[in-house]
């Protein structure tokens, strides 16, 4: 299914790729995003120190040649932890977004194309989830199941899913009234075929934009949960936890907060810029204006 999607969007994309990469902001955003993925996969191996290597003699060490970003309260190398933290951010965001996008698409298509009662039922469900604050959900889940990376992914996936479902549902509702759907029905094409071949390719575009906009949000949410001690449990290096470790001692050791904050900020910036550029390129309305 994923292959079919990318195929169907390719022609419009290929036509606009040169234009896409002309903008220096886009190149900057792409570099950040690429670096994020690269460090997510290989950061741990590039780190100069083992992330769990304690060095009680060098607690709260200032940045030096040996420790570029200093050391934390347990004497661990902050730079290595920042690099390794990328993996946590990447895993959580990819898993959570992946789960929420796939659930969202299925539910959105069902609500948009299915019978009216199903639509009403699903919307009621989605709206209830939507109105539920994720912190509360996280607290409840952690009290019940204890804190783990899986719980973080689950909480994030459940809370972001309604956005995707509603996006897909709205576009599906408008697409299903197009004449080509009627044309397909008049040819005796089955409902599943109609949904997969004629509706999905036409409603999927905005999801890509939303995903690139949502990844930084998820990373921030993960950081926030970890900051509150509800997220990824130690000793896994999370940017949010590093912020938490650093902020109480912000006057003495500001590098801890900076080391946790800068990558968080850069990733957010990179994905947001990329998302906005993607929207410019993919949004049909803007295309019309340009033509």
């Amino acid at each position: 299914m994923a292959v079919e999607q990318s195929q169907s969007t390719r022609p419009q994309l290929t036509a606009r790729i040169p234009e896409f990469f002309k903008d220096p902001v886009t190149i900057f955003a792409c570099c950040i995003v690429f670096a994020f993925f690269f460090l997510g996969f290989f950061g741990e191996y590039l780190a100069p120190y083992k992330i769990t290597a304690l060095d009680m003699t060098h607690r709260f060490g200032a940045p030096s040649l040996a420790h570029w970003l200093g050391t934390d309260n347990l004497g661990r190398d902050t730079f290595s932890r920042v690099l390794a933290g990328t993996r946590v951010a990447l895993t959580v965001s990819i898993l959570a977004i992946g789960a929420s996008v796939s659930c969202g698409i299925v539910l959105g298509l069902l609500a948009g194309y299915g019978p009216r009662w199903l639509d009403n039922l699903l919307m009621l469900l989605l709206d209830s989830i939507y109105s539920f604050p994720y912190i509360m959900l996280a607290l409840a889940a952690i009290t019940l199941f204890g804190s783990s990376q899986f719980i973080v992914v689950l909480v994030v996936a459940i809370t972001t899913m309604p956005t995707y479902a509603r996006l897909i549902r709205t576009s599906t509702l408008s697409v299903r009234n197009h004449e080509y759907i009627l044309a397909a029905r008049s040819m005796n094409i089955g409902h599943l075929q109609i949904v997969l071949r004629h509706i999905l390719p036409n409603v999927i575009g905005p999801v890509f934009i939303l995903v690139s906009m949502d990844i930084p949000v998820v990373i921030t949410v993960e950081a926030a949960l970890s900051f509150l001690g509800l997220g990824v449990p130690p000793p896994a290096p999370s940017w949010g936890r590093m912020l938490n470790d650093g902020y109480t001692l912000i006057r003495q050791t500001p590098w801890l907060v900076i080391a946790g904050g800068i990558p968080l900020m850069l990733t957010t910036l990179g994905f947001t810029l990329l998302g906005e550029k993607l929207r410019d390129v993919l949004d049909p309305k803007l295309q019309v204006r340009r033509a």
Binding site: A183, R185, S186, R197, N202
Partner: peptide, 29 residues
């Protein structure tokens, strides 16, 4: 009835699925 009939529509472009090429549109039929 649909198995032995065909329908043509008013708006030629909007009655053709926008993400499919002419080849696939006819092949589908």
């Amino acid at each position: 009835i649909r198995a032995h009939s065909a329908m043509m529509f008013q708006d030629p472009i909007s009655s053709l699925s926008p993400r499919l090429r002419v080849r696939s549109l006819i092949a589908e039929a």
